[in-house]
Amino acid sequence: MRGADSGHPLRNRIKVARAQHDLTQEQLADLVGVTRKTINTVETGKFVPSTVLALKLARALHTTVEELFYLADIE
């Protein structure tokens, strides 16, 4: 469930992208069809989303998956 499974902690810019689009966690959750808690745990790195959810998040935030998610030791 955690983002450090492969030794590369997964980080994300969801909070920033969400703020840019003036969206709350609940609004983003409604857009991608998950619970608000899921958005919260993805943002905090506790839960690594599936590829499908990552793509949905990127689409909802008008960005790409690579822009939204990155590996901590690479950037």
Binding site: M1, A29, G33, V34, T35, K37, T41, F47, P49, S50
Partner: peptide, 9 residues
């Protein structure tokens, strides 16, 4: 939404 991929896991 009461169930999603996180709740399943």
């Amino acid at each position: 939404v009461v169930e999603d991929e996180r709740t399943v896991i």
